[in-house]
């Protein structure tokens, strides 16, 4: 069991937990994730990305959004409580000196983007971060990202902070590299809701810019055993947990992946409804999902 060392509410629906996990903190690399379970008997196993790690303190930082019954249960946990945590899982991000890297994060996707931005920067890349959210208060990890990035572009859907735009607009401009002296990105990393990643991939495709996306599919074990996370990439079936979680965004079968994310939508809505009754809150079903649908998974990874 892993003890919660610190807890902070970042916005109405987003929490940041620092959890004691010395081995995970030591082994984890950018791009990897963990599986968390609140109750060992009846709890669900949910994949969460690692936002940061402190090997000295022996802890990892998880950022998640409360969008389903299990993430709500996790948000109820306090400092000193323990949760089950397995990791680090998945393949680390392939990091090298690409040249110019553009990292796009949407909403909760900014959390897993953070270690990748760190690693790309440390490898000597010029790193541009595009941070997007629906509205001002859903922007997370801003200080951390702004401190590392060579250029930090903030956009919100409603214009309450930064540019009023979708992340794909500045991404397209960067790919066009129209300004004098501007160079096209050598690599793009996009993490966020599936629909955002899909459109980022569509944006970069005409420019031939390699675009990595980190998929957030349904998983149980996270070790290759269940196959629930499978997705078609370039016509081949891949398991996100052992073959991913990062794939070439231009090759992912997005509609298939998004359908699979909605496999349990009806049950999740029901559970979510029940958990809200239990909490005595009256937030509407699905509130906080960035794009509607696939609520739980978007919130968790």
């Amino acid at each position: 069991m892993s003890k919660i060392l610190a807890k902070r509410k970042l916005s109405e629906e987003v929490y940041r937990l620092e959890v004691e996990a010395p081995l995970v903190a030591r082994e984890r690399k950018a791009g990897q994730f963990v599986i968390v379970q609140v109750d060992e008997d009846f709890g669900e196993r949910i994949p969460l990305t690692i936002a940061d790690a402190d090997p000295g303190r022996g802890s990892v930082t998880l950022v998640f959004q409360t969008v389903g019954a299990s993430t709500h249960a996790l948000a109820q946990k306090e400092i000193g409580d323990s949760i089950t945590l397995l990791g680090p899982l998945g393949n680390p991000t392939h990091i090298e000196r690409f040249g110019k890297a553009v990292c796009v994060g949407g909403g909760i996707g900014l959390a897993p983007l953070h270690p990748i931005v760190q690693a790309l920067k440390a490898a000597g890349n010029e790193v541009v971060v595009i941070a997007g959210a629906r509205t001002r208060e859903l922007i997370i990890m801003r200080e951390e990202l702004e401190a590392i990035a060579d250029e930090f572009i903030l956009v919100t859907d409603d214009g309450s902070a930064g540019r009023k735009a979708l992340v794909t607009e500045p991404l397209k401009e960067l790919c066009e590299a129209a300004a004098p002296g501007a160079v096209k990105p050598d690599i793009v990393v996009a993490i966020g809701p599936p629909i955002m990643m899909k459109f980022c991939a569509e944006t970069t495709r005409p420019f031939g810019v390699k675009t990595l996306v980190s998929l957030n599919t349904i998983m149980i074990d996270g070790t290759g055993m269940c196959g629930g996370c499978r997705v078609s990439v370039g016509g081949e079936t891949k398991f996100v947990c052992v073959d991913g979680p990062e794939f070439d965004g231009h090759l992912v079968d997005w509609s298939g992946m998004m359908s699979r994310l909605r496999s349990y939508k009806a049950q999740e809505d029901e559970a979510h409804h029940k958990c809200h009754i239990g909490l005595g809150t009256d937030a509407p079903v699905g509130a906080g999902a960035l794009t509607g649908g696939a609520a739980r998974q978007e919130g968790s990874r």
Binding site: C226, F239, R262
Partner: peptide, 20 residues
């Protein structure tokens, strides 16, 4: 690591490995 049949439509919603 569950085997699949390698047939079209196998990644549709409602198709599971026995393991899952």
């Amino acid at each position: 690591l569950p085997k699949f049949m390698d047939m079209p439509g196998e990644n549709l919603v409602g198709v599971f490995s026995a393991n899952e």
